[in-house]
Each structure stands twice: as C-alpha cells, then as structure tokens.
Simulated scan of single mutants.
Amino acid sequence: MRRLFVLVAALTLTACGQAPAAQQAGSAAAPQPGFPVTVENCGRTLTFDGPPAKVVTGYHPSLETLLALGLGDRIAGRTNFSESAFLPGQKKLYDKIPEISPTIMLPQKEVMLAQGADFVLDNAMASFDAGGGYATVEELDAAGSPVYILGGWCSPEETLEFTLEDTFTDLRNLGKIFGVSDRADKLATELRGRLDDVRERVAGRPPVKVLATDGGKGPVNAYGGAGITDQMITAAGGVNVLTDVKGDYTEVSVEQVSAAQPDAILVSEYATLRGETMPTVQAKTADALAIARNSPAAKAKRVLPVPVSAQHPGYRNLLAITDIARFLHPDAFTS
C-alpha cells in the first residue's frame, strides 16, 4: 500500500505546485465568528469563510486524525480501510460513515466530483492523478472542494523532507479550518507529552540498530535514511541501519540487508491492497530473518510489526513511536 502511494506519486506532476494561489472555501454566507481563516498547504493558500461541513477523507490516517479531533460528524464519505487494526474506539465511528470507495484510494473523477464535498483530506497525491482517472486538485478546487494533504506529502521529493513537527502543523491547521483550535491544541499537547516522555526515557541509552522493511526476497523493500519511518526510528531511540540509503520507501539489495547487522527489525503490516491479497506480515518477517540470518535481530527473532498506516502522515505515527520505543528499550518502560 505504501509502495502504491510512492509509485503513483512518482509518475504524477504534483498538482500542489500548480494550484491557484488562493481558494475560497466554506460557506458563502457571512463569515462566522473566528473566520475567515487562511492556511498554507502544498504551496497553495486556502481560505475558509466557515468550517467545512461535508468532508471526504482519503487513506485512513486522514480519517483517524479528524476522528481524534472529534469531527466525525463532518465526514460525509470515506475510503475503505481493511488492512490492519483500528485505533481504539474508531471502528464504530468508521462504520457509521458512508464508504465511497472500496479501496484506500478516493473514487474516480465523476464519483468524486458528485460528492459535493466542501473539504478533501488525504495523505498523498496518488488519488489526484488525472492519468489514473481521478479528479485533480485543480478540478476539485474549481468545484468548491479544496484539498489538504497531510504531512506536506505533495511530491515524491517532499515525502523525504517530512519531520514529526509536520504532524503538529497539520493539527494546528485543521484546528483553524474547523474552528476547533482548542481541541487541536489539547491533542497536540497530549501527543507532544507522549513524545517528550519517550525521548526522556531513551535518552543516554545506546541507539538500537534497526532495519525497517516491507518484505521481499530480493531486492528488499525497505526504508532509507529520510522520511517518516526514519524519523520514527530515531525518536524511539533507534538508528536506521539504512540511514546512508537515499530515499524513504526504496529497494535495497539482499547483500545490503545481510551486511547491515540489525539488532531489531520493524516489518510493515497490512493485509490487502486494492482487493489483492498481499504477503502476510509473517511471510515478510520470515523473509527478513532469512536474509539477515546472521544478525543479532535474526538470532533473537526480535521483530515488531508496524501498521503501515502509522508510516503515513497523520497522528498515528506519533502514537506508534511509543510502541517502537517500548520494543527497542523495554527496560526504559518498567516504571
């Protein structure tokens, strides 16, 4: 699934940089208290005269983030999410929202434009590729459905520039857009507190050498020294054994993995992609352990599945850092 986003985005001229300089959104009536508000996203200026009331969300972390902000009643349509576990309490909310696409991608152009959304939230540019039959950012803007991309994942190059602070920026921006800055500030404070707690617990401990992989017998799908997964590993008290490899999601040779000698392995976990059955996390784990069979990680069978949705922009990546840190430094969490 992650691979799909990266490959499609790499074939797409980024619509973010081509969008109009400003986009009016929200109600056409008199501005509501606290509005208009303006935010920057993907090199575009988005102006809202009122909070969106008919929202469409793309890949699941965008929905999760709005649910965490208490905005489930604003979501009129969502894509399918069947790849891994839901966050606590969110499955019931997810089931109440109409599904407008049977895959993780937004629906095709005609169906998407027919939604009449006043806001579209997604995690990457893959669902706005005209070549794939999707409505572009410009077309949605023109239809009164402004698009916001989480994490600044507006182009393949910008995915490499992601930092954890981008998640906090998104929370602030969404708080402004929906007129719930108090909720956004509260959530950001809680998440920053969790992140600070992890950093305090792992401070001074030797970093654990980590291989992050999405399987493969050769070449191996893995995460290099840039982007969201690398940031998560570092924050959790690890060091990416592929830190010298350019890119985020990339392919590396069996020889590189074998020579990396990781102490621990993270394996991306998901079950389906666009209706196709994908290799299970157990199969990908077996492949990784076989390739790195002489490593400390393989000898100890020290492997942690990581939901791939946590490896995309959205507040779940901050939650996952605690889980990774507990896996890498269990002694730091005994009290």
Results as ranks from 00 to 15, higher is better:
Ala9Ser: 15
Leu63Ala: 09
Glu165Tyr: 05
Val37Glu: 09
Leu318Cys: 12
Gly58Lys: 02
Ala286Gln: 07
Tyr223Glu: 09
Val56Ile: 05
Arg316Pro: 12
Thr280Asp: 03
Val308Thr: 14
Tyr59Pro: 05
Lys54His: 15
Glu165Ile: 03
Ala264Val: 12
Ala226His: 12
Leu4Cys: 02
Tyr59Thr: 05
Ala9Phe: 00
Gly70Tyr: 06
Gly179Leu: 03
Val245Arg: 11
Glu251Cys: 04
Thr272Tyr: 15
Met125Pro: 05
Thr38Ile: 02
Val208Trp: 13
Ala124Ser: 15
Leu319Thr: 02
Ile324Gly: 02
His312Tyr: 14
Leu318Lys: 12
Pro36Gly: 13
Arg199His: 11
Val137Glu: 14
Ala76Glu: 01
Val198His: 10
Val180Gln: 09
Phe162Thr: 10
Leu304Ile: 12
Gln311Arg: 15
Glu40Ile: 06
Lys246Ile: 09
Thr250Lys: 12
Gln108Ile: 04
Arg205Asp: 06
Gln282Ile: 09
Val245Leu: 10
Gly43Phe: 11
Gln261Tyr: 01
Arg194Tyr: 01
Gly151Ala: 08
Ala271Leu: 12
Ala29Lys: 10
Gln231Arg: 14
Ala264Met: 10
Ala325Ser: 15
Ser62Arg: 05
Pro36Arg: 01
Ala212Phe: 04
Val254Gln: 02
Ile265Asn: 06
Val254Met: 01
Pro88Val: 06
Lys217Ile: 11
Gln311Glu: 15
Ala25Ile: 02
Thr38Val: 13
Leu174Asn: 06
Thr14Val: 07
Gly89Pro: 03
Phe333Asn: 04
Thr103His: 05
Gly43Arg: 09
Ala292Tyr: 00
Ala188His: 03
Leu69Lys: 12
Trp153Ile: 07
Gly215Gln: 11
Ile100Tyr: 05
Arg78Leu: 00
Thr79Ala: 11
Thr167Ser: 13
Arg274Glu: 14
Leu63Thr: 12
Lys301Pro: 11
Asp122Leu: 03
Glu158Arg: 14
Val120Glu: 02
Glu40Gly: 12
Leu328Trp: 08
Pro219Thr: 06
Leu191Cys: 01
Ser268Leu: 15
Ser84Lys: 02
Arg183Ser: 14
Ala25Trp: 02
Ala117Glu: 04
Lys299Asn: 08
Tyr148Trp: 03
Arg274Phe: 10
Glu110Tyr: 02
Pro36Val: 07
Asp230Tyr: 10
Ala298Val: 13
Pro107Lys: 04
Tyr270Thr: 04
Asp196Ser: 13
Ala130Asn: 02
Val303Pro: 14
Arg302Cys: 11
Ala286Pro: 00
Glu269Trp: 13
Gly70Ile: 10
Phe86Ile: 03
Glu99Thr: 12
